[in-house]
Design a protein around this nucleic acid. Structure first.
Lengths: 237, 237
DNA sequence: CGAAACCTTGACTTAGGTCAACAAAAGTGG
DNA sequence: CCACTTTTGTTGACCTAAGTCAAGGTTTCG
């Protein structure tokens, strides 16, 4: 597998047209509770902010973003979800965000009334929500306190598995600290996620390229030449 | 009661020196599960980011903030909690934020192992986390997409009960659309919450004063002259 | 009263936004 | 496979909201 998928661990690759394989890897939290699998294409809206809440969703493969809009059109992407993440819990009778796929995605859906009933599901939920909450905390730091370069560097680092976190192991091979990323997001989506404009994202990416930290194979496909160097630029070291 | 408490519904008033009263109103989610009450003074740290996770906390009265620090000292306040909110869930074995009181505060503490056991507690947790998650989503919009004035206006509006939300009822008395707020936060804390500098917060507050939208009784005590006007300034209308 | 913490204001700088032009991909239909 | 449109990305010139630095004012508290 050449490129790591943004927000996934590559689960979705090659699965699109193969329901059999899909079901094989669908060991999800929901499947045993009568959740039903469903497929969405790239840039499909699963629900809109303000829609009445009916179902809870678990992302099985692919990538989904949650975003909110201000009346004048400003958009903030509040979460980029990866397989295993849960979304659609609202606390009120309306969804607080729009959920839109970034890639073709497989999702397990379960009726909210069923969620109420199952103790086991509640346990899973608590775990998932806790993890997502931590991600939101870190994202608040990014949005409130980081420079444009730090934001982009942090964004890239989040897509590198096993690196940048607390227990970062350093490069596995000391002569090759590189990594390929597939973003699955347009510059606009990245900008709306990082609280920047499309132009700033573009400029920062060009700058990182000029400095030799990354190589841009396609707008979408980024090769990190030196993960450690990039990691130093996140503001967290 | 003259001033609404920031992040509370005024529960804490007059309770500080009276344990009897305190226990009387402690109908918390935790008390029935062997949680123990404990008191903290203003600006006390309940736990530090990085501390090993032991307990889960429920805020009973007063106000608590959660914040994260970058190595160079930049701080982001990620949540300002109000009575009923839960904190200390970490997902890993370390707290991801520092928890510090903004006022004298009463807190119910419960051992994390107990939380694992109780189904009912898990249910409460899911509810609380969902609500807090929504607040974090909205805060992400504020941090990523709002101007300084919009941030401060939003901050004030969050302290006004029954206003600014989806089901905003408008002024109860059409000739008096005013409201008193007690912030319980310094300019620095507000700045770190809103992703601004202390000077910008100060300037925006002065500007709102000059424009007659608010009156500053003490740095800490703000009178909103026209709630509706302020609400128009949040960027959400 | 004096010290320390906190807040305000002014002058200046700058990171990132805006506007505009153009380039490069990606889709569409003959 | 090639025009042709549309969408997406890049770059430059310029502008501005908010940051920085510095001085002084106000509260709080021992």
């Amino acid at each position: 597998m050449a490129y790591l998928e943004a927000g996934s661990s590559g689960h979705g690759v090659g699965v699109k047209h193969n329901r059999a394989v899909m079901c094989a890897h669908s060991k999800t939290s929901f499947s045993e509770f009568g959740g039903r699998a469903s497929q969405y294409e790239t840039h499909a809206v699963i629900y809109y902010e303000g829609d009445p809440t009916k179902r809870l969703y678990e992302l099985v493969s692919g990538s989904v973003m949650l975003y909110k809009l201000l009346p004048d059109g400003r958009r903030q992407v509040v979460e980029v979800l990866r397989p295993g993440d849960i979304f659609g819990l609202a606390g009120s009778d309306e969804y607080d965000c729009t959920a839109e796929t970034l890639t073709d995605a497989e999702v397990q859906e379960i009726d909210l009334r069923q969620v109420e009933r199952s103790d086991e599901l509640q346990r899973t939920l608590t775990k998932c929500l806790t993890t997502q909450m931590q991600a939101l905390h870190e994202h608040a730091v990014l949005l409130g306190r980081k420079s444009a370069i730090e934001r982009v560097a942090s964004f890239f680092m989040h897509l590198v598995p096993q690196r940048g976190g607390l227990g970062c192991v350093g490069p596995s091979d000391e002569n090759d600290d590189s990594c390929d990323l597939q973003l699955h997001m347009t510059r606009q989506e990245i900008a709306d996620y990082l609280g920047l404009t499309i132009e700033t994202v573009s400029r920062v990416v060009s700058d990182l390229k000029r400095r030799g930290v990354i190589r841009v194979d396609k707008a979408d496909k980024i090769h990190l030449n030196r993960v450690c160097t990039l990691c130093q630029m996140t503001g967290m070291h």
